[in-house]
């Protein structure tokens, strides 16, 4: 695909639109899903099945006044929500939804997504710091230490997959899982990997995505029962809206990564329809799992969370890395 001005602009617009629409309707899905789990109807007044609820909520948020607390660092306060949204949208650029639908495929795609994810944690930090609110401050420190702790097992697990694929190109990784359903990375015995620990690394990766995106049960950054609303305590209006969208965009990216690295990307288990639909089915099933988990479990403690990372996930993923390296040497 040739890089032209038109392509770039369209790609950026599509990425933003995709992120925004996803964020809006994932909120809707989350509310409906939570309601179903709790045996309530959920939003059902505006439009059929309440489908007009997200745009109306958006309009309401936009109509609100942006209040900046006195004593806050104004520039950082405004910059933080933008910073939350920016990396998420940038990451969409390199995610291949199918063989053709990718804005810009890069041979360092995996690395790029992690680099921008790292950028995302600074937004939490600045949001918490600039709010001049003790709850926000505590929450942002929590959230950042959490993201830093979970980046490590996540990266190690990704390296395992990269080692198996021999490439950091997301397209390439998917291509190697093509074929039957059994050649997906998550299934150990038939694919390229021959690594029987692959389901475990899938689990580790999925847990890390939960933690990286600050989702329950790891949502310590916005632990509403102890830290009020966490790092976005002081945010109202579209500032809050951007954080919200950023969170859901991150969920989508995390699920995309899981799909690509473990579930064979757009590879279809059996024919039927084109690959991009399979990608989207896998993506939304993972997101549904996110929602399902969110409404089932209580929140962990901060030390429980760090213990999980340092005492369980990192040793296991390191062992997995060594094991995979050994296997690659043997086979």
């Amino acid at each position: 695909m040739r890089l032209t001005l038109f392509n770039v602009v369209v790609a950026v617009i599509i990425a933003i639109a995709f992120a925004a629409v996803n964020a809006a309707y994932l909120v809707w899905a989350e509310r409906r899903g939570a309601a179903r789990i709790q045996r309530r109807p959920g939003p059902n007044i505006n439009g059929p099945f309440g489908l007009l609820q997200p745009p109306l909520d958006g309009i309401k948020l936009m109509a609100k006044q942006l209040t900046i607390p006195g004593g806050a660092d104004k520039i950082l306060f405004i910059a933080a929500p933008v910073l939350a949204m920016f990396p998420a949208i940038m990451s969409f650029v390199t995610i291949p939804f199918s063989e053709n639908i990718v804005a810009k495929n890069m041979n360092v795609g995996v690395l790029m997504i992690f680099a921008f994810a790292a950028l995302g944690s600074t937004s939490l930090l600045f949001a918490g710091w600039s709010s001049r609110n003790k709850y926000a401050m505590m929450a942002s420190i929590r959230a950042v230490s959490q993201t830093v702790a979970y980046e490590i097992p996540m990266l190690i697990t990704t390296i395992t997959v990269v080692m198996i694929a021999g490439s950091m190109d997301l397209m390439e990784i998917v291509h190697q899982q093509s074929g039957s359903i059994l050649s997906w990375n998550i299934f150990p015995l038939f694919g390229r990997s021959h690594n029987i620990l692959m389901p475990m690394s899938f689990l580790i990766f999925f847990t890390c995505t939960l933690a990286e995106t600050n989702r329950a049960p790891f949502d310590l950054g916005e632990a509403e029962s102890e830290l009020v609303a966490g790092f976005h305590t002081e945010y109202g209006s579209m500032g809050f809206g951007l954080f919200f969208m950023g969170e859901y965009a991150n969920i989508v990216i995390g699920s995309c990564m899981t799909t690509i690295l473990f579930l064979g990307g757009w590879g279809c288990p059996f024919g039927l329809f084109p690959g991009v639909w399979w990608f989207i089915i896998k993506l939304y099933l993972l997101i549904a799992t996110f929602i399902w988990i969110r409404w089932t479990f209580p929140r962990t403690t901060i030390y429980g969370l760090l213990n999980l990372s340092w005492k369980i996930l990192i040793p296991l993923s390191l062992f997995n890395l060594l094991f995979t390296a050994g296997l690659l040497k043997v086979f």
């Binding site: 890069m106 041979n107 360092v108 690395l111 790029m112 992690f114 680099a115 921008f116 994810a117 790292a118 950028l119 944690s121 600074t122 930090l125 710091w129 420190i141 950042v144 230490s145 830093v148 980046e151």
Partner: peptide, 22 residues
């Protein structure tokens, strides 16, 4: 050098800047 560029983001922004803020 996209590789070094991404490493720059990952290490400097994701690690060093965050550590300094901490």
């Amino acid at each position: 050098s996209p590789f070094v560029s991404m490493m720059q983001l990952l290490i400097y922004v994701g690690a060093i800047a965050v550590a300094i803020s901490f």
